[in-house]
Nucleic acid binder design. Sequence first.
DNA 1: TATGAATGAGCGTTCATTCAT
DNA 2: TATGAATGAACGCTCATTCAT
Lengths: 195, 195, 195, 195
Amino acid sequence: MTRAPQKRTMQTRAKLLDAAADLISVNGYTALRVEEVVLKAGVAKGTFFAHFADKDQLMNQLIGAEMDRILDHIVAGPVPKDADSIAEALLPLAEFMTCERYVLDIILRYSVVPEIEQIEPIARNFGRQIEILMNWCSTSDTSFRKDIDAGLLAEGVHAFLLQAMALKFCALHCELGLRERLRQYLRAWLAPVAA
Amino acid sequence: MTRAPQKRTMQTRAKLLDAAADLISVNGYTALRVEEVVLKAGVAKGTFFAHFADKDQLMNQLIGAEMDRILDHIVAGPVPKDADSIAEALLPLAEFMTCERYVLDIILRYSVVPEIEQIEPIARNFGRQIEILMNWCSTSDTSFRKDIDAGLLAEGVHAFLLQAMALKFCALHCELGLRERLRQYLRAWLAPVAA
Amino acid sequence: MTRAPQKRTMQTRAKLLDAAADLISVNGYTALRVEEVVLKAGVAKGTFFAHFADKDQLMNQLIGAEMDRILDHIVAGPVPKDADSIAEALLPLAEFMTCERYVLDIILRYSVVPEIEQIEPIARNFGRQIEILMNWCSTSDTSFRKDIDAGLLAEGVHAFLLQAMALKFCALHCELGLRERLRQYLRAWLAPVAA
Amino acid sequence: MTRAPQKRTMQTRAKLLDAAADLISVNGYTALRVEEVVLKAGVAKGTFFAHFADKDQLMNQLIGAEMDRILDHIVAGPVPKDADSIAEALLPLAEFMTCERYVLDIILRYSVVPEIEQIEPIARNFGRQIEILMNWCSTSDTSFRKDIDAGLLAEGVHAFLLQAMALKFCALHCELGLRERLRQYLRAWLAPVAA
DNA sequence: TATGAATGAGCGTTCATTCAT
DNA sequence: TATGAATGAACGCTCATTCAT
């Protein structure tokens, strides 16, 4: 007999998430204020904290959802068959994750899962990323190295993705853009090893 | 006749750094408060900001110094000739950089240099790391891959080092320890590619 | 045919009172939260407010009931014939009323009756106290002052009782305990005046 | 060399107290909001809490100061020589202390000193009250009872003062006003006892 | 009656940073 | 240089109470 109330709960939660998304689309993630969110959602402040432990939880939901959307789009496309294609495919995701310094900070903080039980959106998305990369890496008609298992290969791609993203905020070594750098890394990483 | 005042300045700066180091040795980096530092150093709060642009600058000095100390020790040792030895050599550094979540956050933020002119301790240390890795990678009597230049090879090692460190804070994928994971990465990364 | 629903109502009310009493016996009155009460009673929060106008009403019931119990016990004993005996007799009551600062606050707030119609437990108990004191004061075989009527005499005893209780929470003037202070007051107050 | 800064501190504190007093003179004590005070004082919220631990501390200062002012006035007048005169003299004080239910609550809470060191304004004023009452009670040309010491006599007067005040908020027993009730109590309490 | 999500107004806190002296 | 009071913009939180279902 718990269905009816859950519905209202979900509605309120949606109102909060929608309001936040609207505000972000105008001013960006960094500028988001809890006060504005509840105001726009037409909801009491106490209600906000009944739905999200703190502001970061809300960010986790919003950023995670956006990452999922981008990942969905990536998955909907063709499977990339070489290093450059993978770099190309990952680019939108990398671009979003580095759209604001604050966003990357949040992602790095919550990509890591402090408590196993509650896997939050961002952490779950990272898991998806690895899985997708594994699939790509284990596709048969590629020239990727085969000496290590797809899992390790995927982790490596991910490591290079993060490295490339981090360097986006770096004043040094900025000659290369995100795309070019990622290509370079992946070409080197995915190249088949000597027999 | 600018030595006397400089001397006093350096003393105050030293007092602040010592006080901070003392407090950190007790409570860790995360818990450090500017208030406590000036209290322990016996100077006014304003004085702190006459010496350090902000709190992060102090952290940069302290953490960078510690990283330099560890790096000195690493350099003093023998040049590692294979992937596992490199992993082993880097371990103390990785261990320190992940001693606290906050420390890794600071390092990641300042490894990247927002203003080219002022290269701060942590960023400079990262530069040293890359250089040392390049030297190791270009040592002749190794079986590392030769198809890419030492710079890219070193960057890759570094990317994997960071990845391994980030995963230390992750509740998921925690079967492997820092050492084992790093070994695995470097073995794969440094293996010679097919001709 | 209104008995059946009344029965359920009384059961729910009893569940709430029992749950509250249980929680109080562990954590005291001050720490009691409505949330905990309904949780322990296994009812919804709204149900609580269907039975008690507000939290203070519940407190009024619980504290008033305890005061009644103590007063019953006092009445069951012998009638005190002198100031010291009255002080002694009142001691258990005073002790309870000052068991927590919060309890005394509630008692003082509700001993006073804002609305004449609904005399709540605590106010009713205060009425009983005055009545009992009047009886004691008008007992013939005592040496209490006879120049003022028993009502005023009783009010005075009560005023001194409150004063003695209030001073229990006072860091200053704490040499004397509750008992000794009350004795002193009552001896002075009940002494016969000059002709 | 700590005088100059103290001066600024005192000015800010005065600004806060003045702003609060102004607001109270318009809307009363109950309605005072910290937010309004800092706004009117032209001071940051953080500053408020650097001067007062919490809102109650501010109230303690303000109410205590007012009580002191009234007490000063009382002391400036002639020494009352009989019960009715004492009641009359105390009336302004009693009137202020019961001007709002909230004010009496604060007074009762802080008349009592939880920590000996820091005696706050209200508690200090209560001390003064007792002292003044003692002086009155020990004046030679009065007909007050002499069998108990002035201290106890003063405490009794005070107890009756509080009782009379508490009854002001009581719907029951409200026939008598504050003045008449206090007179009645003090006449009875101060009457000389039988030899 | 019972439910429990939502309310809501205000308090207290944080603490790096600024600035007038 | 040194001082330290003042800043300030949110955030988090409290928790008794209400109200639509």
